[in-house]
């Protein structure tokens, strides 16, 4: 059964309210609480949205993989809707990462882009999931397109550990401030980063939920239209 498209569920409304509060709190922590970084200056404040965006990208792409596996296994619309939502929202955050990162790099490295392992693998993952989204947008919602897109969702997921460990394995120049050892973050900078993580967790949950719900409604509607057309109800509609 496709969800109602007219009434906003209470959960989404509450999550939206929480997200709004977190936006204000994070902006306060970034611009009023966190100090300016000594070497990079004010541009370092990109970090508080850039890193949580990368984390939200991981979450989105992981949900896309779970939805893809679920769809290939169960062939149910709810899994397909989760895959589409995860891929699309993950790609949105991937775009944020790939745009805000170079703006920081212009100041820190002197260039907008360099073929650093982490940058390159992030771009590659973004291209795989862009192919997923384009396939589902222009290729229709046929079973073959859905299955091929599910395959892309699974393949793309395996790039995530490559992105994460690329800095350690290939000694790129991308900074690794957050480590298990505690990292090199000033104590006054930590609240802004943790609030950023909370904000982007709420954002990715909200967007994936809303998008999956919209996709499930769209798939349900397409099935109803097909059925109605088969019964000759759509001739004058």
């Amino acid at each position: 059964m496709a969800p109602s498209t007219t009434r906003l569920p209470t959960g989404i409304a509450l999550l939206g309210a929480l997200t709004s509060v977190l936006v204000i709190a994070t902006l306060w922590a970034v611009f009023a609480h966190a100090p300016v970084e000594r070497q990079m200056g004010i541009v370092q404040k990109i970090f508080y949205f850039h890193v949580p965006s990368a984390y939200a990208m991981y979450v989105g792409f992981t949900l896309a993989m779970i939805g893809s596996v679920g769809h290939l296994w169960k062939r149910q619309d709810k899994w397909d809707a989760l895959a589409v939502a995860g891929a699309e929202v993950g790609l949105l955050f991937c775009a944020i990462v790939l745009i805000t990162g170079p703006l920081w790099a212009r100041k820190a490295w002197g260039v907008y882009w360099t073929w650093d392992p982490r940058l390159t693998t992030t771009l590659l993952a973004g291209m795989v999931f862009a192919a997923f989204v384009v396939l589902r947008s222009v290729g229709g919602a046929g079973e073959a397109e859905k299955r091929f897109a599910s395959g892309l969702g699974i393949v793309g997921f395996f790039l995530l550990p490559v992105i994460h460990y690329s800095v350690q394995r290939w000694r790129g120049q991308h900074p690794t401030v957050i480590t298990r050892a505690g990292g090199g973050l000033h104590p006054d900078m930590r609240p802004a980063l943790w609030l950023g993580f909370a904000l982007f967790t709420a954002l990715v949950a909200l967007l994936v939920w809303a998008r999956a719900r919209a996709e499930q409604a769209r798939l349900g509607l397409a099935a109803l239209e097909t059925e109605a057309a088969a019964q000759g109800l759509m001739e004058d509609a």
Binding site: M40, G41, I42, V43, K45, I46, F49, H50, S53, V89, L92, A95, I96, I99, T100, L103, W104, R106, K107, G110, L203, L207, A210, R211, A214
Partner: peptide, 25 residues
């Protein structure tokens, strides 16, 4: 390289992409 315009650009990109996606949705 002045950091201010780069910072403003980055936050503007985040805002435009997120709001644009919500409007599209």
């Amino acid at each position: 390289v002045p950091g201010g315009p780069l910072l403003v650009s980055a936050y503007a990109v985040v805002l435009v992409l997120l709001v644009g996606y919500v409007v599209w949705l």
